[in-house]
Amino acid sequence: MKQNKNLYNYIIGIADNSLILAQRLGELCGHGPTLETDIAGTNISLDLIGQARNYYQYAAKVQNEGKTEDDLAFLRLENQYRNVLLVEQPNEHFGYVMGRQYLFDVFHLMFLSEMLQSKDETLAAIAKKGIKEVSYHKRFSGDWIKRLGDGTEESNHNIQEAIDELWAYTDELFDQTEADKAMIAEGIGVDTSKLKEKYYEEVSILLKEATIEVPERKYFIKGGKKGVHSEHMGYILTEMQYMQRTYPNMEW
């Protein structure tokens, strides 16, 4: 029973990252700098929703309380969402959008590559499909980081601003909750502590190539994985849960 609870919490943590990032990207549809980037951003959002659905369906099964993917996605309290703070950061400008995306994508791809080895077959299967999608996300966002960093003076300033601010949320990617630790011990979860060094190395190489200064920061902001979110989260959920809360117990 305890094992199931940990597995459930573990899956929810991964799922929420995808869902909340997809939600942020969804806000942008129709408002991007070109039609082409609109279409690309939507594709990323759709990939993430697809992944989130797979995770929630599995979590609902593990939980075994007769809930659906939508119950889990839409009907929890704010402190029950376990996504990292990084993915809930707002779309201040395109630099933030691509910065957030890239900082998450590098982690996401490393994470899924490890999850491929999970003893849990469902998680391994979701990872297998997700890796292809996320490889493309990283390529796309990484290319944009280079363009913005090594583009114009203005774009360099903007992306630097975004990276400086978002950097504070990167360390949380490697934090481990009780559920994470339990699942790592079982051979199901990914030991993220092993990814940390590689992560900062990879990100730093690209930032340097993009002539962006790698922020030096010792103190990081965290909380999402424990359910303590930024002030943005309430508004994200207000929108996302609007229909479910206003019209309870209906099918759409």
Binding site: C29, Y56, E69, Y247, W252
Partner: peptide
Amino acid sequence: WITRAPSLRRKAALLAKVQDEAG
């Protein structure tokens, strides 16, 4: 309505539709 779509299935379909319009 993308951010307020009432289910994940509807959200994905609506996103794909709006994306098609961009296309």
